[in-house]
Write a protein that binds this DNA or RNA. Structure first.
Lengths: 234, 234
DNA sequence: TGACATGATGTTGTGCACAACATAAGAACA
DNA sequence: TGTTCTTATGTTGTGCACAACATCATGTCA
């Protein structure tokens, strides 16, 4: 799932190919493999994924609609830059939607789901001991998907996903500027660890409303920390 | 704005052309000019709008992403059918978002905004006296845009708009099956009139939270009526 | 008569060549 | 030397021809 490469299974439908290219590019943008402001050449991407420009453009159009790219005629396809202030509204909304995940059409918790959360918690513990920012982003992304699985409301999940990927880059970008502050990073990891632990416990008790509240609080706190860090580095 | 035709201004940017075709098709779908299940031919659309298939396809891709169309290789581009049960989750979410419109980044109410709401209320009064379902849908759509203008949270507005257009057709479709029930239609008009009046009053008092609550309640009630009407016609 | 294979027809998906456009470098001129 | 026009280069947007695919009609055989 985390494969951002261009591995090309011999048989895949038109739909499958689209998803493969789309997710690969989205991951690269959100992991800052493509730096904000950098230019993407359609032809390069077409060559890499073994197709022509046409299907690549479909993917780029979608990524542009989601605010991750910006195509300008005669110039190029530019990775959008991200700004803490512009993302304030997105965070504001994400905070509210997190709470809704626990309220609207919650899933019935079964043993398998609990197991997935416990596994995630274990990986967080490992992350605190020895983890880098990139690994953190990857796990954070995975945990997001796990959390949204708590609701069966498909539109809510789709929208939450879209908003998440709009904000996913900002943490990594902020962290990159503070890379020397090891203590600060450790603090981020521990905070995330606590979030995962709390939500796991809530899921164990089938209290999805509580899970939503915890998530809500942590998104809000995370944004405050990012905003403070951004201000401090100026 | 309500022009669903293919009027072609001599000068318009690439962006402008895209928006023109997109809004035209979206309006036609939501006004049931294109019946659910009917097939659209890319070449016909291309000819009508005076372009080739390529830019038309961009529009179709977006409409497909929003759930209004479904392109199937070798078959055609089909207008999605709508089902009350499938839309339950969308309504569930719309109800919550309506309340958020009054809470997140509310605009500062000025005289011009109040005037727009009063004008809308006047048109609703007219609608009750002599209006058909189609006219109702059009005004309802316009009022939606006016309501979402109460927040400056752009992501919230974009998402609300998307969800609105996913559900916009269901009222007209339900009404079409009950067209003989004039009294029922009148009731729908009067209910909507009351909603617009209440929200207008709330805006006059700059109480956007209240406006959100009224809107929330009316969306919920509207869905209940639609669901009941759908069940009754079986 | 029924079932199945086979071809005809129509549609969306793809690849490619070219147009439209923006940018930067360089030349011509004051 | 500074400025402005021109040109060269590179990119995305468009149009068109063809491939891939699904469906329906037709014919063939048991």
């Amino acid at each position: 799932m985390a494969d951002a490469g261009a591995a090309k299974p011999a048989d895949e439908g038109v739909r499958g190919r689209f998803e493969r290219i789309y997710q690969a590019l989205r991951t690269r943008i959100c992991m800052l493999d493509y730096a904000p402001g950098s230019r993407l050449r359609e032809e390069d991407l077409a060559e890499e994924f073994g197709v022509s420009r046409t299907p690549v453009r479909r993917v780029l159009v979608k990524l542009e609609a989601e605010g991750l790219l910006r195509s300008v005629h005669g110039v190029g396809t530019i990775v959008t830059d991200i700004d803490v202030d512009e993302l304030a509204q997105v965070y504001e909304l994400r905070i509210e939607l997190a709470e809704l995940v626990g309220k609207l059409s919650p899933v019935t918790v079964d043993a398998a789901l609990v197991a997935r959360f416990r596994d995630m918690r274990a990986r967080c513990d490992l992350l605190v001991k020895e983890g880098d920012p990139r690994e953190f982003s990857r796990i954070n992304m995975e945990f997001f998907h796990l959390f949204t699985a708590l609701t069966t409301n498909e539109p809510l999940r789709a929208i939450s996903e879209r908003l998440y990927y709009q904000t996913a880059r900002i943490w990594l970008k902020t962290a990159a500027r503070l890379e020397s502050f090891d203590e600060l990073l450790k603090n981020e990891f521990v905070t995330f660890q606590r979030e995962v632990a709390d939500i796991t416990e809530a899921v164990e008790h089938s209290d999805l409303v509580a899970a939503g509240h915890v998530r809500r609080a942590h998104i809000a706190m995370s944004f405050r920390r990012i905003r403070r860090a951004a201000e401090a580095s100026i």
